[in-house]
Design a protein around this nucleic acid. Structure first.
Length: 491
RNA sequence: CGGGGCGUAGCGUAGCCCGGUCAUCGCGCCACAUUUGGGAUGUGGAGGUCGCAAGUUCGAAUCUUGCCGCCCCGACCA
């Protein structure tokens, strides 16, 4: 056993780190807080990206690309925005290096100071709205529906692989609309795109909701989010969609003439998901033997391992597998035939379990004689002989079953860990002992939310969109409340 | 920035307290052979400025001082 990972029970966060490294998703880098995304991890991201991109285009958006650098002055044009991001910006002050006259390698050339410093984008609202000013004059220019795939930098104090790195990859949609309602509709539409993607592709149930004022995006009027529950009961914000009102239009003076030739500021949204989703995927489904990937996103959906003694048997297996691979390709299933002779089958079994490949097929001379292959599924770790006749079709169905099964498993866990609390004692006890989300009444004030965070480290994850109105008393202050909100400790 | 841990071969480690054949072991790597249905075995081999720098000493991985880096926990956040 060359690759042991820490068990979830022993140390959940160590388990997570071990898994990322040992499954080959990412590596630590020479730069603090920055990671290298390895080919297997990037393949996973590409699959997520491609699917999301398709959905963005289906909903009328186009991709574009805006600069990495933002003039420092842009950031301060929207007051709440600068307040939210100023503390975590990387700043470019010079544009040239030179040899140290004292011979200590290379130094920053003091003569190469920039007139105005450039910020490495932590998000692109400002540079984009500065551009939109020149693109929008009339209602005929609206709606403007743009997305960009990019990297951003946020100088976080503490980082965690995929969940919070200094640099990360994401997409950010930035749209402009003629009316308030249209912008709100867009915000909700994209929230729904995210939720459907999380549930149908990542097999990860999410709760759609709206953020409290404390948790709102810097510069937004409303922040909508999808919240997922990890296996340790902590919450992970998996995506956000912001209704920006006219805040950025006013900050960057973006006005349009409507049909009656009246001037008004445009209405805006922005929405994003990031490589954090990979962290969510890992923590939602994986186990102590490694990753468990949903078939719809797995870079390798099926791996075939040949079992043989000698060249004759190998040749026999090769011939069968060649036909099988054609069947899989016809069904659009990504399949890998691992006939690397330098690794033994047992090694391969363990390796592909670590990498979360949903289905493994082992096939040898004995199987061929019996017209079967051994089919093993990663999610349940069960295996059974399956007829070679129509094997690809059988496995295709199995992949769908696995997708459904891991979703159901995650949902059962999630639902079992959403608990109602009506007293402060129960609230605290649930947080510490049962973990998960707690549905409780809150008096609606930022002070109470702050106080609860201070006392328990739990925050309001969201006010669920499908909330039932219900009179009650705030869990902390006893003041009246009109609906329950979800509290949890979060990543 | 506070608290904790760590830095010895590609990875993981022993040695450090008590300076002197102490650079240990496992995995991995290379070659050959036998193997191949759950992380193979044997034989041989390669690989190390003991994080960096000063100091103490006849002698430092080991003691002293300074510096650097990384990881974990917390505050901040997608």
């Amino acid at each position: 056993m060359s690759k042991e990972i820490t068990s979830r029970e022993k140390d959940y966060s160590q388990w997570y780190n071990d898994l990322i490294i040992k499954a080959g998703l990412a590596d630590y880098s020479a730069v603090r807080g920055c990671m290298v995304i390895k080919p297997y991890g990037f393949a996973l991201w590409e699959n997520m990206r491609d699917q999301l991109d398709k959905r963005f285009k289906e909903t009328g958006h186009q991709n574009a690309y805006f600069p990495l650098f933002i003039p420092k002055s842009f950031l301060s044009k929207e007051a709440a925005h600068v307040e939210g991001f100023a503390k975590e910006c990387a700043v470019v002050t010079h544009y040239r290096l030179m040899n140290d006259p004292e011979g200590n390698g290379i130094i920053v050339d003091p003569d190469a100071k920039l007139e105005e410093e450039l910020i490495v984008r932590p998000t692109s609202e400002t540079i984009i709205w500065n551009t939109y000013k020149t693109w929008i004059q009339s209602y005929r220019d609206l709606p403007l529906l743009i997305n960009q795939w990019a990297n951003v930098v946020r100088w976080e104090m503490r980082t965690r692989l995929f969940l919070r790195t200094t640099e990360f990859l994401w997409q950010e949609g930035h749209t402009a609309h003629a009316t308030r309602q249209e912008a709100i509709d867009e915000t909700i539409q994209m929230l729904n795109v995210y939720a459907e993607f999380a549930e149908e592709w990542m097999a990860m149930p999410v709760i759609k909701g709206v953020k409290s004022i404390n948790e709102r995006f810097a510069g937004a009027e409303d922040t909508y989010c999808i919240e997922a529950m990890m296996q340790d009961g902590k919450a992970l914000q998996a995506g956000t969609s912001h209704f920006l009102g006219q805040n950025f239009a006013k900050a960057f003076d973006v006005k349009f003439s409507d049909k009656e030739n009246k001037l008004d500021y445009v209405w805006a949204t922005s929405w994003g998901v990031s490589t954090r989703l990979i962290g969510a995927l890992v923590m939602a489904h994986s186990d102590d033997d490694g990753l468990v990937l949903p078939p719809k996103l797995a870079p390798i959906q099926v791996v075939i391992v040949p079992i043989y003694k000698g060249d004759d048997q190998k040749k026999l297996v090769d011939e069968k597998v060649k036909l099988l691979i054609e069947d899989f390709k016809a069904l659009g299933v990504s399949v890998k035939y691992d006939d690397d002779d330098s690794r033994r089958p047992g090694w391969k079994f363990a390796e592909y379990e670590m990498k979360g490949v949903p289905v493994r097929i082992a096939i040898g001379a004995r199987d061929i004689a019996n017209n079967v292959a051994e089919v093993a599924r990663r999610d349940t770790k069960t295996k059974e002989p399956v007829s070679l006749d129509g094997l690809a079709n059988t496995v295709y169905t199995l992949l769908n079953d696995i997708q459904e099964n891991i979703y159901n498993k995650a949902k059962t866990f999630r639902d079992a860990h959403i608990t109602i609390a009506n007293t402060w004692d129960k609230f605290v006890k649930l947080l510490d002992e049962k973990t998960g989300f707690i549905s409780a009444h809150w008096d609606g004030t930022a002070e109470t939310e702050e106080k609860i965070k201070e006392l328990t480290k739990a925050t309001i994850r969201c006010i669920p969109l499908n909330n039932i109105k219900e009179e009650g008393k705030c869990i902390l202050t006893g003041r009246p409340s009109g609906e329950r909100v979800l509290f949890a400790r979060a990543y």
